[in-house]
Design a protein around this nucleic acid. Sequence first.
DNA 1: ACAAAAGTGTTCTAAGTACACCCATGC
DNA 2: GCATGGGTGTACTTAGAACACTTTTGT
Lengths: 235, 235
Amino acid sequence: MHKYPGQTRLLVAVDCIIFGFDGDALKLLLIKRGFEPEKGKWSLMGGFLQPDESLDNAANRILKKLTGLEGVFLEQLKNASAPQRDPVERTVSVAYSALIDLNKYKEQISSEYHAEWFLLSKKPGLIFDHDKMVEDAIRKLRYNATMHPILFELLPDKFTLPKLQNLYEAIYDTQFDKRNFNRKILSTALLVKQKDKDKSSSKKGAYYYKLDKKKYAANFRSFLHFIPNPDHLLR
Amino acid sequence: MHKYPGQTRLLVAVDCIIFGFDGDALKLLLIKRGFEPEKGKWSLMGGFLQPDESLDNAANRILKKLTGLEGVFLEQLKNASAPQRDPVERTVSVAYSALIDLNKYKEQISSEYHAEWFLLSKKPGLIFDHDKMVEDAIRKLRYNATMHPILFELLPDKFTLPKLQNLYEAIYDTQFDKRNFNRKILSTALLVKQKDKDKSSSKKGAYYYKLDKKKYAANFRSFLHFIPNPDHLLR
DNA sequence: ACAAAAGTGTTCTAAGTACACCCATGC
DNA sequence: GCATGGGTGTACTTAGAACACTTTTGT
C-alpha cells in the first residue's frame, strides 16, 4: 500500500460551511462536536476523506449525513493546512460551502440532526481555525454573488423582489435603491412573474416571482455586476 | 501519533503549474518525472507535503527546489482527488499556479534544473490527471486576468504597450483594438512612461513603460474588465 | 520613397446611478 | 382616511466598442 517510500501520510478532512437565509438574515449551520478534543464546542460540519471517494463525494456525503441535504450548490474553497491547526494530529482540511433556503429544511435539520442555525452576527467562537474558514467563505460568497446568480439558491421557489433585495442587502450589509435593483434583476430575464402576491409583509402585497430554471442553468455564468467594485471584498 | 482511530491517512501532494511568457507566446514549464511509475514522462513540478509545512510553504519549497524561483505570484487552485488518480497510492494533489517572466529565468532554469519550457500549443501529454489540472489552471488564469492586473508578472520590468497587448492576445487567443487597449491600460494609472524606446520590433520604436509598484500592490484588487463576459471562460 | 509598426481622437451605445411620486390595501 | 410597504420612469454620467489616419524611421 505505501509505495512511495519515506513520505508522511496524513488525514484529509472536509468541512462544510452552510449558509441559510430565512427571508431576513443570513445564518450559518453549526454542530456541537461529538468527540474529543473540543468535544461539545461548536464546529463546522466535517468528516474525514474515505479511501474510495473524491473530495466532492466526501463533501456531499458529509452534508447529507449531518443535515439530510442533497443536491445543493456546493463549492470547494481553499484548504486549511497549517501544521498545528488540529492539535491532535496533522490534518489538512478542505472547505466546502453550500447555500440553502433555510425555511425549506429548518425542521428537518434541527430535529433529526444535532445542528443549529446561528445568525451570522451572533455566531459563537468555533474550534480550531474554523472561524477563519467561515470568514473566508463569506468573502468568497460575496464575491461570487457579484457576478453569478447564486443567491437564488437561498430563496424558496416562489419569492418576491423585496425579499430578494433583503437577501442582497443582508449579504452585503448595505442598502440598494429598489428601482434600480428591480430593473437590474428583471433585466436578466431570469425571473417569471406570478399571478399571486405575498401579503405577509405589506397590505398591498408583493408579486411572487419564480426562477426560470432553464435560463438559470444556461446563464449561470453570465450575470451582472451588482457591486461596483467586487474586488475589495476578497481582501 | 494516530489519535483519530479508524481513519485512513494518505499522501498530500502539491503540483505547480508554471506559466511563462517570452514576449510572443505563452509557455508552460514541465519536468521529466524522475521515479516510477511513469518515469521519464512529462509531468508538472510536484512533491509531497511535509509534516512541518503548510501547503503554501510546500508549494514555494517545491517551486524553488525544482526551478530556483522565489517570491512569485503563486495561487492555490482546486484539489485533484479522484481515488485512482495516482495508480501507485492514494494521493490528493493540491494545484498551485505561478506566473513568471520567462526571459528572466530562462537559462537558470534550463541549465541548473531538468525542466523545459513548452509552447502551450505544443504541450506533450502529461502523467496522471495533470493535463486536466493544466486546463483548469489556464481557465482560472484567464478568468483572474479579466479582473486583476496579474499579467504584469509575466513581463520584464520594462515593457512596451504592444508587448503587453501581445500577452493579452496570447492568453485570450484573440485580437484587441490597440486604441481601446492602450486607453484602458493607461486609464488604470498603473503604468509609468519611460524616456527610452524599444526598437527591436519596429523602426519607430515603442516607448517603454514600468509598473508603478506601489499602485500595483495597492490597486491589485480593483482592475478593469478586459473581457466582456469573463464567465464563459470558467466552463 | 516606402514599408512597418506606433501612436492618437471621436462618435455611438449600454449600463449604472440618482432621484420622487403614485398605488393598493388593511386597519 | 391614513399608514405601510410595493411599484414605476426619467435624466445624467460613465465605460466600452467601433472605427481610420498620421508619425517615425530604417532600409
